[in-house]
Design a protein around this nucleic acid. Structure first.
Length: 641
DNA sequence: GCAAGGTC
């Protein structure tokens, strides 16, 4: 029997269908589906089926010496027992093995992991590797006609990442958890991707903390000529209120149109969805990244949309986009479909062209009644975006008017939508028309009123989930599949609250300690260095062992710095944790009011100077307590929910 | 109970 291994079940099923003349026979082995035909069996994995971990002896955090942990043995243990068992069963019978996992570094490693499982029961089995970018009959047949060798160097590169992430992550996670006393399910964590991400959020918040708002004034005149419109003084922001008031005082009751400039503004249609662009768009219509991914996964598994994890922003030539557009002719999207098909189909393209998977696009038309509200929202977003990438530009007519009022220049800008183009298909956040009345140069207008409006400069805004995912991509940390999970992780560690993300005092303390004593782990450069090392491993220039050892040496240095300052770090972490519990000042004794726990485990708001002060307020029994920046009117306390 | 990376 010739055993073929793919990275996921779906790929196994489709590849079997392509390679087999007849319909392949489905067989269930230990709960895992495999597809048989002509002496071949195709079986899908579920990504990594094993993981790296330390031996059990190191499980106790309090009793493990962290310096020792740096050099502890790293083992591979199964995470998907049923798939590993099925793999052994089929592997034993196999006379030949072909690895057909995804064509990237992790895919190579996943393949080698499967090979290692099989080698234990069938040491002599010959194995080769096929590489393909999309699952189309032509490409799959071509790949299987000329199989190549497994790239063990590339897999070793991937393994070095696993080992380094585990060791750094475990040692630093345990260190901050132990020194802050946060053990059990409340542990604090540190990692190559999560910590630089958290550092971005904390550093942004620090900019907000030190931001001093500057007051400024803007001068507006309402002008009438049958129609009515508002014009702003050309200076824009006045930092000096007196200056603006003096101008206001000298303004007469009429103004003259000095100039009218007509123009055009075109907006290009958006690029195809890769995971990052998709999550950004979902985020902008109010669906969190984790939720959007969960729903996209559901829509993919049920055949409504294509694979949702992709970096690609260019439709491959093999994708029959016209056919997909036509499939919507008998649906509620028929008007869009019809209009697109009546013209030439030239999709937009993004900068990233990869071979992993096509951009996210609809696979089959769905009916609104088949899906839940949020599922439909995401589905509709994918459909509309897909259409929009084939549509024309949105065209606006613009008008810039300058009006002279008593020697002072005022300006107003108008915009009118003349051709909706892609915005007709993709009707999210469409800017409104700002229509100015008909005007001609030299026309005299009545000044109806003049307003001087006081404002303040605003601090830089907090990052929303969609924006943060984009920043992570730009910095080269995380992957399309993990970035949203990393963000979820920050929430579950109570490092951040809300969306846009607001860091807690605990997050400040962790990032401050790491930046001071373990700066490496807070910077995206750790990832870029690792990427370079991995490239060299895959090119055969250096070994996995060398890279891992070098990394261990670095960690040893970092750790000794941390260890030397253990007391300081412990104190500042505990401080941060305490500050996150403060929700206001006690009315009775002006000490801190904090969230406390009774001996029975129920929580309440109590005074920090108990037993001297016995002020107490109840808290709901269930639900997560999130400290926000809003204050309650009754007690001046910070609201939570 | 640790990370990040696959996938469901």
């Amino acid at each position: 029997m010739h055993l073929i291994i793919t990275e996921k079940h779906d790929a196994a099923k489709r590849i079997a269908a392509i390679l087999s003349e007849k319909k392949p026979a489905k067989e269930r082995i230990n709960g895992v589906d495999a597809y048989k035909f002509d002496g071949k069996t195709v079986m899908g994995l579920s990504g990594h089926i094993v993981e790296v971990d330390f031996p059990k002896d190191y499980n106790n955090w309090q009793k493990t010496d962290l310096k020792e942990l740096i050099h502890a043995e790293v083992q591979t243990t199964p995470t998907h027992a049923n798939i590993v068992t099925a793999l052994r069963k089929l592997g034993k019978e196999a006379e030949y093995l072909t690895i057909a996992t995804d064509y990237d570094r992790e895919g190579e490693l996943i393949g080698v992991e499967a090979l290692n499982v099989i080698k234990k029961v069938n040491p002599e089995v010959p194995a080769d590797r096929v590489r393909y970018s999309t699952i189309t009959p032509a490409e799959i047949k071509k790949a299987f006609a000329s199989p190549a060798n497994i790239d063990f160097n590339l897999a070793a590169a991937g393994e070095s990442r696993q080992v380094i992430d585990l060791i750094w992550g475990a040692v630093l996670t345990r260190f901050v958890s132990l020194s802050s006393g946060r053990l059990g399910d409340k542990f604090l964590s540190v990692g190559r991707v999560q910590s630089p991400t958290l550092a971005i959020i904390v550093n942004r918040e620090k900019e907000r903390d030190v931001f001093v708002p500057v007051p400024y004034w803007e001068l507006f005149a309402t002008l009438v000529n049958g129609g009515e419109f508002e014009a702003q003084h050309k200076k824009g922001r006045f930092l000096d209120k007196n200056e603006a008031e003096q101008i206001k005082a000298k303004l007469g009751s009429t103004g003259t149109v000095k100039s009218i400039v007509l123009g055009k503004r075109n907006e290009k249609p958006p690029i195809p969805f890769n995971t990052t662009e998709f999550l950004r768009a979902a985020s902008s219509i109010g669906i969190s990244a984790a939720n959007a991914m969960r729903i996209a996964e559901f829509l993919y598994v049920n055949g409504y949309i294509s694979y949702p994890r992709t970096d690609n922003t260019v439709y491959p030539a093999t994708l029959d986009t016209k056919d997909i557009i036509a499939s919507f002719l008998n649906t509620e999207f028929h008007a869009y479909s019809q209009k697109l098909l009546s013209g030439k189909l030239e999709p937009t393209r993004g900068k990233k062209e990869t071979t992993d998977h096509p951009p996210i696009h609809p696979a089959t038309p769905a009916k609104r009644s088949q899906l839940k509200d949020d599922e439909w929202k995401i589905y509709e977003l994918v459909v509309r975006r897909f259409f929009a990438t084939f549509a024309g530009e949105t065209q606006w007519e613009t008008m810039a008017v300058t009006v002279d009022i008593s020697g002072e220049e005022f300006g107003a800008n108008g915009a009118r939508l003349v051709e909706p183009g892609w915005r007709w298909y993709y009707s999210y956040n469409v800017p409104e028309d700002r229509i100015l009345p008909q005007l001609r140069e030299g026309q005299v207008l009545t000044v109806k009123e003049v307003n001087l409006i006081g404002k303040e400069t605003q601090p830089p805004s907090r990052y929303g989930q969609g924006h943060l995912i984009k920043i992570m991509e730009d910095m080269g940390i995380g992957t399309k599949s993990t970035r949203h999970e990393i963000i979820s992780k920050l929430y579950s560690r109570a490092y951040v609250v809300g969306n846009p993300l607001q860091p807690t005092k605990t997050a400040y303390a962790v990032i401050e300690a790491l930046e001071k004593y373990a700066n490496t782990i807070t910077k995206p450069e750790m990832t870029s260095k690792l990427e370079q090392d991995m490239d060299e491993i895959s090119e055969g220039k250096i070994t996995e062992e060398y890279v891992v050892n070098e990394s261990k040496d670095m960690l040893e240095e970092v750790f000794s710095d941390l260890f030397k300052n253990k007391e300081l770090i412990s104190e500042s972490l505990k401080n941060g944790l305490y500050e996150d519990r403060i929700i206001g000042t006690c009315k009775k004794c002006s000490s801190d009011l904090i969230i406390r726990k009774s001996r029975k485990g129920s929580r309440f708001i109590g005074c920090s100077s108990y037993p001297k002060c016995d002020f107490i307020l109840p808290l709901p029994k269930s639900g997560q307590i999130v400290i926000t920046d809003k204050q309650c009117e009754d007690h001046g306390l910070i609201l939570s929910k």
